[in-house]
Each structure stands twice: as C-alpha cells, then as structure tokens.
C-alpha cells in the first residue's frame, strides 16, 4: 500500500524533480523516469538507425548509461527531455561519424514497389506503418532528426534547435521539407502543394 502511494507520488512529479530525486539516491524515481521516456527514446534511436534493432538496442543502452553516469552533473534548470535527447543526438552523431556511412542505401524504388502492392488488403495498416518508417529512413539526416525529435520527443522548435545546434527557423524549414518529402514518398501520385 505504501509502495503504491509512493509510486503514485512519483508519477505526479515532473521529470526534473524525478531526476533530482534519483541524484539523491532514489532508484524508484529512475524507474518512473525510465518508464516515461524509454519508448520515445527507443523509437527515436531506432528510426535514426533505419530500424536496425540490435544497433538501436546497444545505442539505447549507452544513452541511458550516459545519463546514469552523468546524473550528478544534471542541473534541474535544464528540461530533462532536452537533456536526454541531447545525449541521444550526440551519441548518434558519434555513431555516424564512426560508421561513416548511413543506412540510406534503401532504394526508393523498393518503397515504391511496396506501395504498389495496394491499400485494399488486410495488411493495409501494417503496410502504411512500414512505409512511413521507410520514408523516414530515406530522409536526410537533419530533416529526419527534426521530425523524429518532434514526434518522439514531443519537443518544441526551440528545444530541437538547441539539441541540433541550429536556430529555430532552420528547424522549422527542415520540418517543412521533411513533411513535404514524406508526403511525396507516401503519396507519390498526389500533387505536392
């Protein structure tokens, strides 16, 4: 009973308060924090790595371990989501630099072929999900980062700008280009406005 009430109290707390609580040694606070952000961060990493699961798992673990190790350096003045996705972005940049090649070799034609399979079968929903994942994977790195931070991290333009190291207007234009491109890939016959 007491444990449940304690967990409920932690659920009501903000990310920043939970992180401070974890700094002070409260592991339950980390549980709540991890539960809140594990899905979004995992999908962000997974999409960035073109749905490469094993690599995504490894980098996902690295990001969380970096957070754990750098917990004492965390300042509550910074928004926790921004801090977490900053760590993730830097880790991915390091990975890309070390790999020197991205998984952008997926052929656009393959996606088009998959699309031509037709939306009328039972697997239409799954097909759409697959398409959009593949479409995101085909986006340029900057546009992909911007759209994934927006969708998975639920971050504002300013926060995305802070993480990616560009100004707000650049982020805005990247998002517009990404949306246009995704629309073009998902609906190739529809005229682009």
């Amino acid at each position: 009973m007491n444990d449940n009430s304690a967990v409920d109290k932690l659920d009501d707390q903000t990310d920043e308060a939970l992180m401070v609580s974890y700094q002070e040694g409260n592991t339950a606070a980390f549980d709540v924090l991890y539960a809140r952000h594990k899905g979004g961060l995992y999908r962000y990493v997974l999409r960035q790595l073109n749905n490469h699961t094993e690599l995504a798992n490894e980098i996902f673990q690295d990001i969380w371990m970096k957070l754990v190790n750098a917990r004492l350096r965390y300042q509550p003045s910074a928004k926790f989501t921004t801090y977490l996705y900053h760590l993730a972005h830097n880790r991915l940049v390091d990975h890309w630099r070390s790999e020197k090649k991205h998984q952008q070799h997926i052929e656009y034609e393959d996606i088009l072929e998959n699309q031509s399979a037709g939306p009328h079968n039972k697997l239409h929903q799954q097909q759409v999900q697959k398409e959009i994942k593949q479409a995101i994977a085909l986006l340029p790195e900057e546009q992909r980062s911007a759209i994934l931070l927006k969708e998975e991290g639920l971050l504002s333009l300013a926060e995305i700008a802070e993480i990616t190291g560009v100004n707000r207007e650049t982020v805005k234009s990247r998002l517009r280009y990404a949306v246009k491109r995704l629309q073009g890939m998902l609906h190739p016959l529809r005229p682009v406005q």
Binding site: K38, G39, Y42, R43, L46, N57, F60, Q125, V128, Q129, K130, I132, K133, I136, I147, E151, E152, V179, L182, Q183, L186
Partner: peptide, 13 residues
C-alpha cells in the same frame, strides 16, 4: 504524417 507516424510508432525496447 503525424497521425500516420503515431499509429505506426509503438515499438518498445
């Protein structure tokens, strides 16, 4: 795009 992405985005570690 947002609706489609959110519908497809359900992976967990």
């Amino acid at each position: 795009i947002h609706e489609k992405y959110q519908a497809s985005s359900n992976e967990l570690p």
